[in-house]
């Protein structure tokens, strides 16, 4: 984890409302798939807090890129960054995707909307490790799919299914539908599901994983104050099997952001959008 001032290399719009920010660091950093950063334009007074963005790709030992959707005040401020602007950054943060290959099973990667940002490096790693991988990529529209990095995922040439809410690209259905079909029709014994997307999507993925007794990891999002464990603001409710006590809430920033899906109490929604 380093606290640093980075420099924006580029910050381009991929599709309306979706952008890719690339930053340069002054020292080498080692990032594992699924980790994130806390970012804010340097010196900006509003909004106050940094924003947690998944590290999309390691472009070099001192260069990282972030794929993000412009949703609120924080991401709007980040969208204003121009080349050479300075960025306050704390990174890399959180745990990372743990790839299970011992069972001989493959991987099913479920990307929902901008949740894809946490999954590209995982897909690259799965390909490198030659894990039999199926990609299920869901977005609202064809343009949103482009904004969520579909081209970068396609470049990996993994077997994939694309869905959109409006049918403008791929099948008109939720991305959880092909997941259910895959497990029902092909079994995928010993496989692991890796999912990141909106809360209702991940909740449904967790239900399907439980139904088909398939290992499932999810990367969660939560509003964060600090990103390094002190504010305890980003918690998620976890199953402890007992009454509400001190282990009932885990911090998304330092205990996660990746959790086994069965650990999460999905009825307690941690996200605000």
């Amino acid at each position: 984890m380093i606290e640093t001032i980075a420099t924006a290399e580029s910050n381009r719009e991929l599709a309306p409302g979706y952008r890719m920010l690339t930053i340069n660091l002054i020292e080498d950093v080692r990032v594992n798939p699924g980790q994130f950063a806390m970012l804010k334009p340097r010196g900006s007074l509003e909004p106050l807090l940094r924003r947690a963005l998944a590290i999309y790709r390691v472009e070099g030992p001192q260069r990282l890129s972030f794929l993000y959707q412009v949703l609120g005040r924080g991401t709007t401020a980040l969208a204003q960054l121009r080349e050479k602007d300075e960025v306050e950054a704390l990174l890399p943060l959180g745990n990372s995707w743990s790839i299970e290959t011992s069972g001989g099973g493959g991987a099913i990667v479920v990307a929902g909307g901008i949740g894809s940002a946490s999954l590209l490096m995982l897909c690259e790693e799965l390909k490198r490790l030659r894990v039999d991988t199926k990609l299920l990529f869901g977005a609202a529209t064809e343009r949103a799919a482009a904004g969520c990095g579909l081209e970068d995922f396609r470049a990996l040439d993994l077997p994939s299914i694309v869905t959109t809410d409006d049918g403008s690209l791929g099948d008109k259905e939720l991305v959880t539908a092909p997941l259910e079909r895959e497990l029902r029709e092909h079994g995928h014994k010993g496989s692991t599901i890796y999912a990141c997307g909106p809360w209702p999507m991940m909740r449904r993925v967790a239900e399907i994983a439980a139904q088909f007794k398939t290992r499932c990891l999810v990367s969660l999002e939560a509003p964060m104050g600090c990103g390094f464990g002190v504010c305890v603001g980003c918690v998620v409710a976890v199953n402890t099997g007992g009454p509400l006590d001190y282990g009932s809430y885990k911090r998304v920033c330092t205990d996660g952001s990746i959790f086994p899906s069965e650990a999460i109490r999905w009825e307690v929604n941690a996200m605000t959008h």
């Binding site: 909004p47 939560a222 509003p223 104050g225 603001g233 998620v236 509400l244 809430y249």
Partner: peptide, 19 residues
């Protein structure tokens, strides 16, 4: 030890935050 409140626990406001 104490469990604390259910999420969401923080929200940013202008020039500050609620927790």
């Amino acid at each position: 030890p104490l469990a604390g409140n259910a999420p969401p626990r923080i929200v940013e406001t202008h020039g500050g935050m609620l927790n």
